[in-house]
């Protein structure tokens, strides 16, 4: 994990200015989930809807070719960024071909 320490009083910026854009990316959301989405690249038809609807930028659209068992090659692959995903299940609910399954998180 990257550093998520709070600033001490000498480090606090005047006016509470935050100087690093998008710094919430350093926060870890793994602990928010009870279920995690798992995308089946075989079933996925690359419609982009999960990527569109995810409120947490947790669906990654990557340029990684994938050939399914019927021989069809897709240029893109959709993956889950589990450090962002809160397990809301919107992606699984909205996927038109049920390619996303919500799997219970293991209790360690």
């Amino acid at each position: 994990m990257s550093e998520t320490r709070l600033p001490t009083w000498t480090e606090v910026t005047p006016g509470g200015i935050v100087r690093e854009p998008g710094s919430t990316l350093r926060l870890d959301k793994n602990g928010w989930r009870v279920e995690k989405p798992v995308i089946d690249p075989e079933k996925c038809v690359r419609c982009r809807l999960c990527w569109i609807y995810c409120p947490d930028t947790a669906i990654l659209e990557v340029e990684e070719p994938y050939t399914n068992s019927k021989g069809r090659t897709y240029k893109l692959t959709y993956k889950v960024d589990y450090d962002r995903c809160k397990g809301c299940g919107i992606c699984a609910e909205e996927c038109p071909v049920d390619a996303i399954e919500m799997v219970p998180e293991e209790v360690a």
Binding site: T24, L25, R48, L49, T57, D81, K86
Partner: peptide, 29 residues
């Protein structure tokens, strides 16, 4: 169409909106 939306984000994840809060979707786009 939905493919016109750029892949890069300017509203990033890791925020504290409730799980499933549609505000995240709105702000991203």
């Amino acid at each position: 169409n939905i493919w016109s939306l750029p892949r890069g984000e300017l509203f990033h994840g890791g925020h504290n909106l409730c799980a499933g809060c549609t505000a995240g979707t709105i702000m991203r786009h």
